[in-house]
Amino acid sequence: MLDRLLGRASLRERIDELEAENERLQNRYEAESERRADAATARQDAEERVNRLEDRIAQLEGELERVDTDESGLTVRRRDQLRGPRLEGVLDRLTSIRTGPEGALTAGVDDAVPESVRADLEDVLGDRVALAEEAAPCLCCVDDAGLLAVTLEPPITPDIGATWRDRFALEREWFLPTGRHAVALVRTDLFALGVYEDDERVDYRGFESDVKGSHSKGGFSQARFERIRDGQIDEHLERCRDALAAYESGGERADTPLFLVGQRGTVDALVDESGLEPTATAAVDATGDPKPALADAVHSFWTTELRVL
């Protein structure tokens, strides 16, 4: 009775209505947030599936190429991954071979093979020149009698064209860690740089950055998540540029080869944005903490694939 007389009853009813409306809007907001989070997760799942399918397509295309090669009778007789003492032994054998004047051809084979290089290879290999092109970029070593024909995919592939000599034109520093050099590993969340004397590491610096991983259900949208992650990656790459600049400004880089390896897109972005001129770059798969990841990257980088044609 008193509430009605004082007008409290209508106010309480209005409060109840507003609380009910507020609860309804809150439920709607939570449902919408859940829907967007589900959509973002579904998008990530779809992207991962697309990546897996693209990998599978690439694998099947490779298998199809091998089938086509098999049907044409062109097959690689042997394929091997070489590093360390085993690689040294193979290089020793190849460099010990002697022929008559201009009897040993060493040719750099790139994706676009110059006609002059292709003509020299075809003179000796015939149709098997296609096997050398499949290995590109590589070095092809073949003698004029056709007794030996191999391709090598070294970490550093020089631009030597087609070179005819009485021995194969191979330099050990294209294949093996020689003298003082540096290897820098770059991922979107990690940097590690080692300075080496031959294959022994004599200096090291590295760090990790806090970069968000895959987006999952949460209180912010996929777009905001991606903006945050892109910003974190930019900050990480800035740290990488500063670390490399400090290495170079310290006088250590003078005449010292620098090999930049890691995730291909990250390596390319770092080179483009920093003005670096590394001796060579390579895509390698190196996971884990900085030091063991660097060790894996160095192992992968200094590996040469041998194909016996």
Results as ranks from 00 to 15, higher is better:
217 K>T: 13
175 F>S: 00
13 E>L: 03
116 S>V: 15
207 F>S: 02
228 I>R: 12
66 R>Y: 07
78 R>A: 11
304 T>D: 09
65 E>I: 00
178 T>H: 10
172 R>Y: 06
250 G>Q: 13
93 R>N: 09
42 A>I: 05
284 V>G: 03
189 D>T: 09
281 T>S: 04
256 T>V: 14
253 R>P: 07
255 D>M: 08
83 R>W: 14
289 D>E: 15
225 F>L: 02
51 N>D: 15
86 R>P: 02
25 L>M: 12
92 D>P: 04
105 L>D: 04
71 E>K: 09
23 E>H: 15
209 S>N: 00
72 S>N: 09
2 L>P: 15
171 E>T: 04
80 D>L: 14
168 F>W: 12
153 E>L: 10
28 R>Y: 10
81 Q>N: 10
47 E>H: 10
46 A>P: 00
239 R>V: 10
202 V>N: 06
132 A>C: 11
1 M>Q: 15
24 R>L: 15
181 H>I: 00
207 F>G: 11
25 L>D: 04
230 D>L: 06
160 I>A: 08
30 E>P: 01
299 H>P: 11
287 T>E: 09
257 P>Q: 09
255 D>Y: 06
155 P>Q: 08
230 D>R: 15
262 G>V: 02
252 E>R: 08
140 C>E: 03
209 S>K: 01
306 L>T: 05
258 L>M: 14
6 L>R: 14
284 V>S: 10
195 V>L: 07
81 Q>W: 05
219 G>F: 15
282 A>Q: 08
210 D>G: 07
221 S>I: 02
146 G>W: 03
174 W>G: 02
300 S>I: 01
50 V>A: 10
265 G>E: 15
246 A>K: 05
2 L>R: 11
183 V>P: 01
166 D>W: 03
153 E>C: 12
215 H>F: 06
171 E>Q: 07
164 W>T: 12
191 F>V: 02
262 G>F: 01
68 D>P: 00
263 Q>H: 15
279 T>L: 05
130 A>Y: 10
91 L>D: 05
286 A>P: 02
29 Y>I: 07
64 L>Y: 10
11 L>Y: 11
137 P>H: 01
19 E>D: 00
115 E>F: 07
119 A>N: 07
147 L>K: 06
279 T>P: 01
284 V>K: 04
215 H>G: 08
217 K>L: 13
238 E>G: 13
84 G>Q: 12
102 E>V: 08
303 T>E: 13
154 P>Y: 02
17 E>Y: 05
40 A>N: 11
94 L>K: 08
211 V>G: 01
30 E>D: 15
258 L>G: 00
280 A>H: 05
164 W>C: 06
15 I>L: 15
297 A>I: 00
96 S>F: 07
261 V>Y: 00
280 A>C: 01
43 R>P: 08
159 D>K: 13
186 V>E: 00
78 R>H: 14
115 E>P: 06
248 E>Q: 07
239 R>S: 09
214 S>A: 13
234 D>V: 11
215 H>E: 07
131 L>P: 00
244 L>K: 07
240 C>I: 01
79 R>K: 14
297 A>K: 04
125 L>A: 06
80 D>I: 05
49 R>D: 10
109 V>K: 03
90 V>G: 01
255 D>G: 08
253 R>C: 09
296 D>T: 03
31 A>F: 06
75 T>N: 13
252 E>I: 01
169 A>L: 08
99 T>Y: 05
93 R>P: 02
293 A>L: 06
95 T>V: 15
165 R>A: 12
